[in-house]
């Protein structure tokens, strides 16, 4: 039996840990986020079959998060979790808090795993993109030697957005790691960081 991949948005850490434990033991995959902001960002990855959304959360509450997702055409089930009555439209179901796992599991049974469609990247397009990455890495070496960091960061940013589309998730992940610290590190650490990035990329298997 294939279980749902759940996105669990809840600011109560203990409740989240308990839910994760129970759900994972029952075979569900669970991704936990602490607020509505993170729930929106995570939901837009479309990796989850269903969202369990606490209504009262900091930064962005569950109702605002649900409404934002619906406005963006998010068409997967969103289940509210609340101790209070929820009257807003847009939720597929409301679970009354406190949650009891057996009841939650019974309710989850009515939802199905989202049908997944696979897409192949045409071989010639992937090959053309890999050549582009190889050329870009040479260009990055040149930019690093000249310490042209703005141009360097712009190319890395492009990797982050595009490489994953062509099956080069490793390059995309390295670009993400590079970007998370790049703007905050002091100037003297830019070159070692750039060299680290280039070496890591070169170690990746592209073909």
């Amino acid at each position: 039996m294939v279980h749902l991949n759940l996105l669990f948005a809840e600011d109560d850490v203990l409740l989240a840990q308990l839910f994760q434990l129970q759900a994972q033991q029952a075979g569900y995959q669970v991704c936990w986020v602490e607020n509505g902001d993170a729930a929106v960002q995570q939901a837009l990855s479309y990796q989850h079959d269903l969202i369990l959304m606490d209504v009262q959360m900091p930064i962005m509450d569950g109702i605002s998060a649900m409404q934002m997702l619906r406005q963006l055409g998010f068409d997967r089930p969103i289940v509210a979790m609340s101790a209070e009555e929820v009257t807003e439209t847009g939720f597929d179901l409301v679970l009354k808090k406190p949650l009891h796992w057996q009841q939650v599991q019974q309710q989850l049974a009515q939802f199905e795993v989202s049908p997944s469609v696979s897409l192949q990247v045409p071989a010639e397009l992937k090959e053309a993109y890999i050549s582009h990455v190889e050329q870009s890495l040479q260009q990055l070496e040149l930019l690093a030697s000249q310490e042209k960091w703005q141009e360097f960061a712009a190319i890395v940013h492009q990797f982050k957005g595009s490489a994953g589309c062509f099956g080069l998730e490793n390059i995309s992940e390295l670009a993400h790691q590079f970007q998370t610290s790049w703007n905050t590190i002091p100037a003297e650490q830019k070159l070692p960081r750039a060299i680290w990035f280039l070496e890591q990329c070169k170690a990746c298997k592209l073909r």
Binding site: L44, S45, Y46, L72, V117, G161, S162, C165
Partner: peptide, 14 residues
Amino acid sequence: SFIVKPFSADKIMA
């Protein structure tokens, strides 16, 4: 709508 790269069939279908 709003799509986050990388493109996947599920995102585009939605």
